[in-house]
Write a protein that binds this DNA or RNA. Sequence first.
DNA 1: TTTTTTCTATACTCGCGAGTAAGGCGCTGT
DNA 2: ACAGCGCCTTACTCGCGAGTATAGAAAAAA
Lengths: 214, 214
Amino acid sequence: MTADGAMTQSPWPSASDRQAERETKREAVLATAVRWFNAKGFHATNLDDVARALRVTKPTIYHYFSSKEEILFECVQRGLDAVRLVAEAAQDRGGSGADRLQAFLKEYALVMMRDFGMCVSRTSDTQLGPEGRRRFRALKRDIHDMLQGVIEDGMRDGTLAAGNPLLAANTVAGALNWIALWYDDAGKMQPEEIAEGVVATLMSGLAAGRKDRP
Amino acid sequence: MTADGAMTQSPWPSASDRQAERETKREAVLATAVRWFNAKGFHATNLDDVARALRVTKPTIYHYFSSKEEILFECVQRGLDAVRLVAEAAQDRGGSGADRLQAFLKEYALVMMRDFGMCVSRTSDTQLGPEGRRRFRALKRDIHDMLQGVIEDGMRDGTLAAGNPLLAANTVAGALNWIALWYDDAGKMQPEEIAEGVVATLMSGLAAGRKDRP
DNA sequence: TTTTTTCTATACTCGCGAGTAAGGCGCTGT
DNA sequence: ACAGCGCCTTACTCGCGAGTATAGAAAAAA
């Protein structure tokens, strides 16, 4: 039985407890900041507001982050990480290109209705400095390449219509990213419902006359 | 023969000439400003830069506009006016709902690759004050309603697949608006080509299996 | 010519908000 | 006990850029 054993809970935090505590506080800052960024925009949000919402003061925030830009960057990074995870899951999923694409798109859409996902669409790379912009673009490019890759697979195996994969990827990415700009938490439609509907439209198109939808 | 007759060009400008001159200068400010806004973002652009590009100074700009926000608003207004014009043209065009929609979408896409159109997508309403935000949203809502109206027409006459018109409108608007964020002037694809491709994807969908595209 | 209006420049103000300096409190380890 | 570090505070600096006060040149009106 170790000192960290499950039998007794020591009131004195261990070193790893305190490390975890620090991480929890960092995450709390990000969670609060991202909501302000989404609601008011990055520039219109000042860190005093964020600090007040957390019932601390601005220097406290600077104890965990070195700059406002770093906070924004970590927010979009979390959003993009979430998208990358669903992209990887879709790739590993097996099935036809169309099946993998559909699964990918739906999860992608759902991410865009969560705080960190929304932040990605609402953040312009002009809000970051040169280095942050470079990294932001690189992360977005990774996502794009995975999306385009799945589309190419589907075109190759014949489950997706032939066409320009770059254009197709940008088209669907646009429709999905845009969700972050019109989705309303308090609205009537549920995320699940929106994701299903948008993906169905993208897969089947607007025009009438599909074989499978008479 | 009037004083403004076509026969002789007086070197002394008439009152209407000077009015036109003033308008020309206003437009020049907007044309320059919108390019800076699109390239660097609204906040990162300062009016000294814009003035220098026009080889004047900041107070000159304030002689034509009352604030930086007014300049931005007039830029997005021009972009949205362009979209409204193509929407009205599509409505008057006649033909089935699907035909009118397709015509609308293509012209919409083309607008999003021009300076003022790009500015619309790149501008968040958080960049405007309460009044500007209200007007901006109203203009965007007009466009949305027209788009959704055409889609409803198409669903009613059976040329578009049945579904949720609100969702469909948001999906296509997203794909089109997003063009403004990835289109590259210096890229290989021409606006015409992009517009055709994106609209075709939206109308027909990504999945293989259309009757009209075996 | 004189007066007035239009347009533009030089040289400022001024508020906002990112980021910092310096100190205090409490826990940890020696 | 005491040195050291983690955490958080109050109270500041300071630069940037929107917007302005003022004046002068040129053109229009009188």
